[in-house]
Amino acid sequence: MKLDRPSPAILLLVGLAAVSSTMSGRAEQALSSSTKLVSQHRVAAAPGVVEPNSKEREISAQIVGVIKEFKVDENDEVTAGQVIAVIDNAEQSARVASAQAQLALRQAELDRILHGARAEELREAEAALSEADAGLKYARRDYERRQPLAKRGVSPQAMLDQAKANLDASEARRTVAAQRLAQLQTGARSEDVDAARARLRLADAELASAKAIFDKTFIRSPVAGTVLRRTHEVGETVTNVPPTTVAIVGDLRGLKVRAEVDETDIGKVTPDQRVEVVSDAYPGRKFQGRVSWVSSRMGSKIVQTGRPGDRIDTKVLQVLVDLDDEAKLPVGLRVDAYLFGELVAAKPSR
């Protein structure tokens, strides 16, 4: 039986399929040989210390005194500006009261000068002038009456001298009374007003100073956080030279590790790098974090691990690591921080 030959179209399709299969196999082989495996491994280790989210703040006294009261205990949460302790302030309180009274007095003096004399003061001044006029009139008549008596020898010279002295004194009293009345009628001079205003400003400044000193008797926390430690107790004396630390406050809402990377490993540190933190106090546990800050300056080693091979003369680079929220560690705990980097390797061919 005679078989029909395949048509040219079918032969073409079969050839294309064979070529496509060959090229696909070669491409898969090339892709398989070029595929890389990426993994992370420890690239550096650094000793460190656990810190609060913000640096520990030492809250100190600003004046000399005796602690009267503590408003907080250790582990209490505080807000920024909250009073944590009070220094005995009876003397400072009295100074504020005195300064307030002085300010009120100076204000009253200025008001009297600006508003002029009251009707009662004018009537009092007019009465004083009338009294001085009457006294002067009597003293003049007495002096004039004794003059001829003294010339004739009927009255001693001493009596005449006394009459003259009384006349001079009466004239002086009349002059003072007249000036007082004139001053009340014409009002204060501009220089008197300026002087009164200057005294008022001085009293106001003294009150502000007294209040500022009084406010320093209240020791406040400059930041929100947790009272990590109270370093003094009620009844103990504190001073501002040098400043006496009363309490230590830190923000524990987030923890950091301040790690010290050896100078030989600083090229392996990058921001946002993955970090694993371990501590002898928590065997078998690993705490995760990320590099949030890298210092731009080398420094001396501060963290001492106490290990026999620990070098203390090496230069280090400080790095801050933000720990995950799940990490609950005490502030000041010594830890080891392991920095992770990527390891790239070729995937073996099939």
Rank of each mutant, 00 (worst) to 15 (best):
A134G: 06
E91G: 03
A108N: 12
A163F: 01
E126G: 06
Q92P: 00
R106N: 13
G135C: 02
E121F: 01
E124W: 01
K137G: 13
S98V: 09
L136Y: 05
S155T: 14
R95F: 02
Q162G: 07
V154I: 15
E109F: 01
E120D: 13
R123N: 09
S98W: 02
E126T: 11
P148I: 09
Q102W: 00
P148E: 09
Y143Q: 15
A128I: 02
R152P: 02
G135A: 11
A134V: 12
S98K: 05
M159T: 14
R145N: 15
V96S: 07
E144M: 11
A97T: 14
A101D: 12
R118I: 01
Q147P: 03
L160P: 04
A99K: 06
R141L: 12
P156R: 10
I113S: 08
R146I: 09
R123L: 08
Q162L: 06
L103Y: 01
R152Y: 03
A94W: 00
R152C: 02
E126Y: 01
A128H: 03
D111M: 05
V154G: 08
R106P: 01
R106T: 15
G153T: 06
Q162T: 10
G116R: 09
G153H: 04
G135V: 06
A117H: 03
L122K: 14
R95E: 14
A128Y: 00
Q157M: 08
A97D: 15
A125G: 07
L160G: 06
A104V: 12
A158W: 00
R123M: 04
A125T: 11
R112P: 03
E124H: 02
V154S: 06
A104P: 03
R152N: 12
A97E: 15
Y138W: 05
A117C: 10
